[in-house]
């Protein structure tokens, strides 16, 4: 389970309308956030890549279990490449693909919870 049901219920006080609204907002923003990540990757722009991942991480943090959030923290750090050994961006992409697949799972879980 990637979605943290307790977190979403806590965030929305289990208000179904609020769950639907916040989920729709997230789902509406998500394609643009993913596009920003992939555009930065294509341009090999590590700084923009870490910023785009950070933005996605903040949004995901409202819904996901902590371990998934931490996965984004790791992607952000690796994208920036400040610490040796610096991970090649091609390896970074593998991690991103795994994370993106899990993100899709979270989206399905979220849609299910929100009834949308």
């Amino acid at each position: 389970m990637i979605l943290d049901h307790d977190r979403v219920q806590d965030l929305t006080r289990n208000n179904t309308k609020l769950i639907a609204s916040i989920s729709q907002l997230f789902l509406a923003e998500l394609p643009d956030m993913i596009r920003s990540v992939e555009k930065a990757y294509e341009q090999s722009d590590r700084k923009s890549l870490s910023i785009a991942i950070h933005r996605l991480k903040s949004a995901v943090g409202n819904f996901a279990v902590k371990s998934f959030y931490e996965q984004f923290s790791r992607l952000e750090l690796l994208a920036l490449g400040n610490n040796a050994p610096v991970m090649p961006l091609s390896d970074w992409l593998n991690e991103w693909d795994t994370t993106k697949a899990q993100l899709n799972t979270m989206v399905i879980e979220l849609k299910d919870m929100a009834g949308i």
Binding site: L11, T12, I22, F26, S58
Partner: peptide, 18 residues
Amino acid sequence: VDDDAITRFALCAALEQW
């Protein structure tokens, strides 16, 4: 002050509730 629309939305809802 937050650039993330979802966090802003969540914070607004919570603050209004409080």
